[in-house]
Design a protein around this nucleic acid. Sequence first.
DNA 1: AGTTGCATGTAAGAGGTTACATGATTTC
DNA 2: GAAATCATGTAACCTCTTACATGCAACT
Lengths: 180, 180
Amino acid sequence: MNTLSYGLLSLLSKDSRTGYELMQHIQPFWPAKHSQIYPLLAQLEQKGYVEFVHVVQSDKPDKKVYSLTEAGLKALQEWIGLPTDPPVTRDEFALKIYCIGLVNKEEALKMLVERASYYKGKKERFMESFEKVKGQSEKPLEELEFHDPMFANYVLVKKAMLKVDADLHWCEWMRSKLKS
Amino acid sequence: MNTLSYGLLSLLSKDSRTGYELMQHIQPFWPAKHSQIYPLLAQLEQKGYVEFVHVVQSDKPDKKVYSLTEAGLKALQEWIGLPTDPPVTRDEFALKIYCIGLVNKEEALKMLVERASYYKGKKERFMESFEKVKGQSEKPLEELEFHDPMFANYVLVKKAMLKVDADLHWCEWMRSKLKS
DNA sequence: AGTTGCATGTAAGAGGTTACATGATTTC
DNA sequence: GAAATCATGTAACCTCTTACATGCAACT
């Protein structure tokens, strides 16, 4: 049982989902390809932590909808209590910035503009998620209680927004540095 | 040539360093163990991108001090111009927050306090780095020019600080949410 | 006396990406 | 007509971690 496996259980604790959907929704927290997820789901099923039903579709390919079992829920709860690994980030851009003096200012500025627009796109998508969460919640988001199923969605979008804002802020600050 | 290999060249473009030192200094941008770095250095040497001198020490183990060659510099400059991969973060804590409603408020609060103190420690270390950079620079940091060798150190510590501040801010905001 | 830091390296195994394979429907 | 979306799966390959191996000096 690796972290990604527990991550899949975590998502399944809220909704039954297909492997494809799990792959899409786990990206913000733990990027993974379908080729990694499908074998893990088979393992989780063998362990009795998840179960699935075949759903036949006419317009789209047939699918397997997975759900969490009682044993899976138990395993998930135990994992939450275990020590948590610190987040790991690998940032190629930062490595390039380290030796940015090797290129001219114009090229450096071009790189920063590109990176800033990447973060702007990311921010827009988070803002859409935020609006989506707002739409799905009955209460105003600030009033959501700990046990509300929407609580986690709200606080995690908030987390993502704070981070992307910090990244964007740094990009803009860098751009002003390079223009002068 | 993978990203880590270019990262090593990037560090070597500023100072000649041992594999051990490279391992220590690349952590903030691209975490890696010595067991990954030593073989890559051997590869880089075979490609002619780096060279090393044996340095015999009496009190400590002997070491190999690597430096960038002309060919290495050229490879490094070409890499900077290539498209840059987006940063990748894997965050076990976020996966746990997603299903945090499975445990009680007290346990959740405990987890957040722990995570906040982790970020506080990180912030302190970044503030030390900041002071170190300040001490090594003749000019006030805000006046550092693009081509100053200290410029990259300054802007990268700034980047790290903005990010850790965002993380800490989220932790504290979460704590206030859970106390009410 | 035991741990940490310096310093290098290899081997085995786990984790993750890319490519191959299939196939219908919808959008540009 | 080409690309993207849905949907599953396997195989080969690359990346990364853990463990093994050695040894001295400094600190607790």
